[in-house]
């Protein structure tokens, strides 16, 4: 049987080991007031955080503001950061809250159609200045497809695939039931697999 010859696809498990071995020391130094140490933390995490915030908001300028604001708030509160924990999840929580505040404000202005629209049209998705941060064509295409996802699907997909969170974590992060995480992720992937068919063959 042909399929047996192929390598069996195993369910995926997420490797959580920290990318930055010195992070603990940096955090300690930052807690003792070292702006330099905090500056290194900024440089280590800013791209990931930027991508995260941008993929929630799909608005380049606001994403930049929120990334800046998140680091400033993290610095202001660095002394209450609990040692022994990873820095990024904490930072991302601050950023998430700021991003959702932004969304709420925008909602009041009633200009949020772009965020909530249910259509899925990667072709006509404009990444704006974000596109300049991507080096190759296939990255551009993938990001366009992800950014074209409706807001609810996109957030769940980003948290799982970019941020590597578990379903339970996503559920408590977004305050939705775990079953909803499952179904939104399933639909997001379905949309992406359809639109990226040729890339995935």
């Amino acid at each position: 049987m042909l399929w047996l010859a192929r390598e069996e696809i195993q369910p995926k498990t997420v490797d959580k080991s920290s990318k930055w071995p010195n992070e603990r020391k940096l955090l300690q130094a930052a807690q003792n007031g070292s702006q330099e140490a905090f500056g290194i933390l900024v440089r280590n995490h800013q791209k990931r955080l930027f991508r995260f915030v941008y993929s929630i908001l799909r608005n380049f300028d606001s994403a930049e503001d929120i990334v800046q604001e998140s680091f400033v708030k993290a610095w202001q509160a660095i002394k209450i950061f609990r040692p022994g924990h990873d820095f990024y999840p904490w930072l991302a929580t601050i950023a998430r809250n700021l991003a959702y505040n932004w969304i709420r404000r925008e909602e009041k202005k009633e200009s949020l159609d772009k965020l909530r629209e249910s259509g899925f049209d990667p072709e006509s998705t404009d990444l704006g200045p974000f596109e300049k941060l991507l080096s190759d064509e296939s990255s551009k295409r993938l990001y366009k497809a992800v950014m074209a996802l409706p807001f609810e699907y996109r957030t769940v997909f980003v948290l799982r695939q970019f941020e590597e969170m578990s379903y339970d974590q996503i559920a408590s992060y977004l305050k939705i039931p775990p079953g909803t995480v499952d179904s939104r992720l399933h639909r997001a992937r379905k949309l992406l697999m359809e639109s990226l068919k040729d890339l995935l063959e």
Partner: peptide, 13 residues
């Protein structure tokens, strides 16, 4: 799909 997403390089620039 997951692999493709994982292969996405970090952001450039």
């Amino acid at each position: 799909l997951s692999q493709k997403i994982e292969e996405l390089s970090g952001l450039d620039e």
